[in-house]
Design a protein around this nucleic acid. Sequence first.
DNA 1: ACGCCTTATTTCAAGATGTGATTTAACTCA
DNA 2: TGAGTTAAATCACATCTTGAAATAAGGCGT
Lengths: 398, 398
Amino acid sequence: MRDLRTSNRARVLRRLYFDGQFSRHELAGATGLSQASVSNVVGELVEDQVVVEAGLVGSDGGRPRVLLRVNPDHACVVGVDVGETHVLVEVFDLTLRRLAMSTFQMDTIANRGEAVVERVLAGLDQCVQDSGVDPSRLLGVGVGVPGLVERGSELLVHAQTVGWNGVPLERMLRAGTDLPLFIDNGANTLGQAEMWFGAGRGARNAVIALIGSGVGASVIADGVPYRGASGGAGEWGHTTLSLDGRPCRCGANGCLEAYIGAKGVLGRHREAAGLPPGIVDEEVALRELLAEDSRAAREVLDETARYAGAGIGNLINLFNPERVIVGGWAGLLLGEQLLPAIREVAAKHALHHPYQQAKIKLCELGTESVAMGAATLPVAEFLGAGGVRSAALMRPTG
Amino acid sequence: MRDLRTSNRARVLRRLYFDGQFSRHELAGATGLSQASVSNVVGELVEDQVVVEAGLVGSDGGRPRVLLRVNPDHACVVGVDVGETHVLVEVFDLTLRRLAMSTFQMDTIANRGEAVVERVLAGLDQCVQDSGVDPSRLLGVGVGVPGLVERGSELLVHAQTVGWNGVPLERMLRAGTDLPLFIDNGANTLGQAEMWFGAGRGARNAVIALIGSGVGASVIADGVPYRGASGGAGEWGHTTLSLDGRPCRCGANGCLEAYIGAKGVLGRHREAAGLPPGIVDEEVALRELLAEDSRAAREVLDETARYAGAGIGNLINLFNPERVIVGGWAGLLLGEQLLPAIREVAAKHALHHPYQQAKIKLCELGTESVAMGAATLPVAEFLGAGGVRSAALMRPTG
DNA sequence: ACGCCTTATTTCAAGATGTGATTTAACTCA
DNA sequence: TGAGTTAAATCACATCTTGAAATAAGGCGT
């Protein structure tokens, strides 16, 4: 019974959140509820200050409709991006406009879970202070981490590349804050940001293909992130694209990541150009490679497009998405130049029908949206609960 | 409001359908409803004869609990398997016990949509007559077809391999019957059968990997079949596993199907053994190959296991399923012998964590469960509607 | 300026449904 | 046979949705 009201509040609220301003009358049509119920529900939402009236719009000879919209200031959320070499904390209002941010660079977070937690908590304090929001208005903290999140009896983070093997991040953060915590893979949170506010808007089935130093993907199936049995879905980078091909850091051969990850691309170029291995700034090197006008560079990039295209073709064949959204810092750099070639290869490798359904485009929010995406997690919970602090959004004590 | 009752009826009914017998008391716990509501809902279901009482079970000193179960005879369903060379029609009771069947062999259904429709309708009449069920008790007809089902303004079937290009199968069948029709890809219906009654029982995330002459997959995400944007998801056979590898009938190179589809396996063996191409019975040839004790055969089969293992590794990496269920006539033949090798290769190619979550096993219902799976479609609709003929289960007139 | 018309929103009176508490049913065991 | 125990049904009540009717708030013509 109470679930019914909650779900109706959520229906109305989601509509207002994602599709902008509506009058009560329009909401009735859009949500399938009766006008009486909408009036009821909206009344509550307005009383709770979750929704506010936003002016009238005149009609040709009738009572003007009152537009409603979500109140951005009703609550705030925090998004945290834990990267392999940085910790970024941001505070947003309810509509995900940024109010403050705080960032730390680190050499590496490898084996430094404690340090990361410290930085997150410090950034949190800093940001909240800077933004001037009352801590009681914070809905919660979303955290994007560079690894797999396992939700068992305790939430554990496995980030092989930085040596995190079952780090109990939630418990560790819990020791320093009583804010509700939402932890997910950074690729997923970035994907969520793109779905809500970027290249994925309006799509119900999409794959966000992320190419950085490594390669991963975030899958949205029927509007919700698909996580698989244990949160490990979307490991696109380690799908085999060339049996017995280049060795990959995961131990297998022929993984996609070994070809189109920044490390893989640069490595192939080094080999082709006969350069010695060495430590470089990958981003600088990749930019140089893209600007270079040599035959070796062209060939490496052509190959990259071929592998990326085939890999995206595989995604299209398996997931039949409406959108394939290419992102990650390397993905955006490469994509800017190679996207037409990638599309061409994908068209060849994917079946005709699913290929036609899929638009291949680039991320619109850049590479910095992990924190914003993390911040969507408490907001999603809030919307789903009909604009009320559900159990998940409650502080442990009082 | 009415939705609430429906959904509660569905909750109770699903539990009884899939998990056997329960007392009202146990159902309350299992469904999360109050005992009063369960009593209410069950009362309705019993009155509607959807559920029947199935005896008492004594207790140590209390009123005995009344066990409830779904009434298998409350309604019947029809499942149809349209294969590339046959049409199979079966009638089942509500619990999917087969009551009658009728099968037709055809040379090919290529460009013979009309003939297929005739056969389906004839088989339907035949079966209904043989089983002696009153046509009014038929919930509907599920049809599994060998191709992609596009649900646009009109349902269209695209089966490239048999030249069906947008065949309006629903409309064509509708001309000959007024029974509710449910049409889906045969791979999906077979997968559904395995999920309900075979190797997928109890799993919420699974991939059914089907290897026949061609190769496909059916994906179950969070308990429901994942179809993608336009029903074209799960085209595993045409994912690239070896860029620039063997040509595939789809026009691309290096597709998984070119290696592990029966045609591909036999083709590779012919080449390795230096045999001339020719038309053969694929099933006989594959059995011979599996029994053959030559070095060429061993090598071809080893290769097959390597490709299949890598392909399954890809599925595991992308979908992180609890189960990978290998089926299809060739899959079962190959799997029986190669499964250990396939598991080994998959372990190498998949990441550690997702691999550990995934059990790789064979289909338990053989290759003949397409029709049974098709019959689950009207049953699923019936269960979802709480044991009532929903709009989708209503005949067009009266 | 006034009243009629149009459209949006609120109010109202059912009607439907879930729920906790209470009662009744059905059986065991001493 | 009666006390004890557990299952199922019943009841009174609170909650919610909804269609209809009432009310609000403007435009437009006279």
